[in-house]
Write a protein that binds this DNA or RNA. Sequence first.
DNA 1: ACGTGTATAATTGTATACATCAAAAACAAT
DNA 2: ATTGTTTTTGATGTATACAATTATACACGT
Lengths: 234, 234
Amino acid sequence: MSSEYDLTKEVTDKYSLRGRVFNKIRDDILNGVYKEHDELKEIKIGKELGVSRTPVREALRQLELEGLVQIIPNRGAFVTGIQENDVHDIYMIRALLEGLCARWATERIKPEQLEAMEENIYLAEYHAAKGHMDQMAELDSQFHHILYDACSSKMLEHLLIDYHQYVLRIRKKTLSTVERSTACNKEHRGIMEAIRAGKADLAERLAGEHMRSAYENMVRNGLYDIYKSDRKDS
Amino acid sequence: MSSEYDLTKEVTDKYSLRGRVFNKIRDDILNGVYKEHDELKEIKIGKELGVSRTPVREALRQLELEGLVQIIPNRGAFVTGIQENDVHDIYMIRALLEGLCARWATERIKPEQLEAMEENIYLAEYHAAKGHMDQMAELDSQFHHILYDACSSKMLEHLLIDYHQYVLRIRKKTLSTVERSTACNKEHRGIMEAIRAGKADLAERLAGEHMRSAYENMVRNGLYDIYKSDRKDS
DNA sequence: ACGTGTATAATTGTATACATCAAAAACAAT
DNA sequence: ATTGTTTTTGATGTATACAATTATACACGT
């Protein structure tokens, strides 16, 4: 069972109103429901979700810290969103950090975690072969979360989980093609083998390349036109 | 004038209660006033600061997102703090990211920013020579913020400012020695020269080394014993 | 003595009320 | 018609009130 690698960020999210509101708004921003510079009014959102202002406010304050929302005192909360160039930056940042994560994981991974990775890749290859594309994003997420866990760095894990979330929507699209999915699985396997063999340098390099190739695939296929609509050159 | 590079993270911090409460608790955690596993009760903190629970709650929710506080639903908020190994991780992460920042800054820096860096280093060298150690942390912060600004990446800037803050207390201690201060200034100058010369690879490498040498200096001088007290091996 | 169960207190979660601020509208003056 | 001022409106900032949950204390039974 790999239910251990639950992808929910905080346990609180499921059980508190604030957590649900936070996730809802966050998803709506990442999924383009709210666009750049949209104003997020506490009362309106509260009504829509059937809650009072309080949990909405708390959620907005958190989103401010994540950089998805800008709060101007006494004015309101405005969507910051993710720009086209932000996606580029995120992938370049991730290339470095996933590399570091793979390096540390090589030195610190536990047998169960390696086991879990093995199982994950096996499953992913199976579903890719069968064309079950809807499963791929989930499995990809899981693979990376196992890696984040295995690096045994609270700091790095926290960071990578955040950045992983940011590009959630785009990842779903990217992985919906068979080509990218199979390539992705191959790269995952490569990283795992390097970790298993204790080759930290190789693992780091492969993890970095994994990010770059994901990004290049995205650009090549014009898969992030979705962000272009609400672009502003300021 | 370099007042442009104001180090406050958000404008809201100064003017809203929540912002002040947030900064206060944050500083208290980073400065060791609250220790690992301390419980942060909304009413108590509110009373201490002379405010109601609302701003305190919002601040705690934000700190949760920063990872400095863990919130257990219906139970309370507990200090997570920064462990000894977290400091290590932060510096290794920063080594990569400051490197990337320097690289991008090399390609995108504006003349005014280069000017500001020049001025900053000049001032820092002056104060270091005069033994004005109290100024060093501030100037160091300023240098890095100029760099963050110059890389023209909202994402990377946001991230680096966060991590820079995390190690604020320890940086103050480290820079209080003349040796480290002068070495630090030399490294800053090196980075600036590389950027000015358009040597991105060199700038990246130097910025990374700057972090590693800062960390090694810290370890060598046992300067982060302060974190050891509340350590737990879990 | 020990564990269990209930009552009480304390704390958090949420909703609402009031205060404050800022943009928008209405109006006056030029 | 345009500008400047006042009024109004609507939103946020903060405080408080109530509900739900959890921790504590104590009595009871074994």
